[in-house]
Amino acid sequence: MLKIENLHASVEDKAILRGINLEVKPGEVHAIMGPNGSGKSTLSSVIAGKEEYEVTDGTIVFNEEDINELAAEERAHKGVFLSFQYPVEIPGVSVTNFIKTAINENRKAKGLEDMPAKDMLKLIREKAELLEIDRKFLSRSLNEGFSGGEKKRNEIFQMAMLEPKLAILDETDSGLDIDALRIVANGVNKLKSKDNAVIVITHYQRLLDHIVPDFVHVLYNGKIVKSGGKELAHELEEKGYDWIKEEVDA
């Protein structure tokens, strides 16, 4: 589904990603861990198509298509979804209107008519219930004044609405209380199927208890320096990153 080879990316001539290789197949869950500043969010943004980052080398292939030159919205239309580490506040645009617009723009890109209002409402209600989101919440301005946890839950609500093929969850667990973590993880698991894939970026094992990864990768200094199964996450939780840094720097 996703095949990244030798990906180099920089911002303002500063190299941040330095040769990433990653392959994600349908049905898989990959976890990416790594110290602060190692490039995890940058990698997510580059996959999602943020223009600020310049890809200086390598390829990103999504479903057999090189998506490197595509605009962010075109990648979204092909099924890429990024749950932001820091969701952006958009005053004046309600959650409902935003998601309606997003859904209909995705449909438009596929040559479909707007979703009938009745179906839209039903879908919104269904997904809001799945994530235990209060209906009143949906009429508020997008992310404006939302608590950290509310923002993250809202990201997964949008994911549930858009049903992407590849979802990248950038620290979706941070800011969530224990109950919210369970609800959000449940939501993600309900959406999982053999045809879609998830990349989970996290610092903690606790999310991976709920969303169990098939592979765990460690990103350090813009490179994936170690990969393993789910037990690698436990090892990191116990030992921290020093041993990996030593291995790499040696």
Binding site: E73, F84, V88, A102, E105, N106, A109
Partner: peptide
């Protein structure tokens, strides 16, 4: 700009 990227990453084209 960050709001623009956020919206576009959800499939809303630049102009919209």
């Amino acid at each position: 700009e960050s709001a623009m990227f956020y919206m576009r990453s959800r499939g809303i084209p630049e102009k919209e």
